[in-house]
Design a protein around this nucleic acid. Structure first.
Lengths: 183, 183
DNA sequence: TTATATACCGAACTACTTGTTCATTATTGT
DNA sequence: ACAATAATGAACAAGTAGTTCGGTATATAA
């Protein structure tokens, strides 16, 4: 990819994330993004069809780092997720979130938009399906699997939200414990 | 309140709800509302500061019917909520949702906006706090109460969402069972 | 019935946002 | 050096939010 394209794309993403940590997604305008990214209006629209597409692509890029190793089971990452402790997948997620490498926390905060949560939950569900045996003890045979998967994914999201709202004072290990106790 | 005011307010609410069941909240415009309600633009703004305020007030009106009896414990409604079966509060909520008297389901569907869910969860939390003994058996003493309350409220919302997404084929009794098994 | 208050009307208006167009300029990969 | 392509910036149409105001209809009270 052309270096100019790469730099522009990077500038847009970075401006977008900066704005997301300051304002609500819905009240961020394209004008604000291009001002902060210091690019022309036409350039923005050459890269992203709409603001929603920008969010979608940002999500894909963020989730790629967090979820891909688990979902597609890249051998070189397997040891991170599938080691002895059965709760290590979720522990790893919480640890990743705490580092907040790619400002994913700003997107998860409750003032932000439903679109992001949809992508996030959709990825989570895929992950949960792979980890279902983990929760076999808790699951009742009367519950449909899709209900159960949705429930676990939603509980994860709500756990993260609670963690953020309460200042993230707990360690990832403690939060993992909360999550597993709740789910 | 002046009859004219009442009628205008009613027309706005009813137009708004009709639009909500057809489109996403975010893409409903004030222009569409006043067209459907058949009122002047200035009149709308005399009643509601913004579209978000309209949603807020609609929520308050809807929730009033569903939650007030439980929260403030009006004696004349007590029998509905505090009868023998301990899960009757939630069963009653699910039954109320199934009837969809005031089109609350349209607002709960996932394509709609975060604002509504915030109000809904906020009311649910108050309800859950009053019903905490119900879940004493499941709760671990290691979990902070606020975490537990948030978790139960979120699980309720997600249960309703799953119910809607799956065509609401289950009876309120079955859904209540799912909810209590999950939480 | 009359008088007064007030809610509604509607049209115009400002300011802002979105998304597009296009001729010009700068940068890139080869 | 050159051809391809990305970025520029300014202008543009269309749509939206929210306000203003003089005039009209309706409610309420005497």
């Amino acid at each position: 990819m052309d270096r100019r394209q790469r730099k522009t794309r990077e500038a847009i993403f970075s401006a977008f994330i900066a704005l997301l940590s300051a304002r609500d997604y819905n009240q961020i305008t394209v004008g604000q993004i291009i001002d902060k990214a210091d690019i022309g209006r036409a350039t923005f629209y050459a890269h992203f069809e709409t603001k929603d597409f920008l969010l979608k692509q940002l999500c894909e890029e963020l989730f790629c780092h967090i979820f891909d190793a688990t979902n597609h089971g890249h051998p070189e990452h397997k040891h991170i997720f599938n080691c002895d402790a059965p709760d290590s997948v979720f522990l790893h997620l919480f640890q990743h979130l705490q580092k907040n490498d790619n400002n994913i926390l700003q997107l998860l905060s409750c003032q932000n938009n439903e679109l992001f949560l949809q992508y996030f939950k959709s990825n989570l569900r895929k992950l949960v399906v792979n980890q279902l045996p983990l929760f076999a003890a808790r699951k009742s045979e009367h519950l449909p699997e899709s209900f159960w998967v949705d429930h676990i994914a939603a509980t994860f999201v709500e756990t993260v939200r609670w963690w953020i709202d309460n200042g993230m004072t707990q360690s990832p290990e403690t939060i993992t414990e909360y999550f597993l106790l709740a789910v």
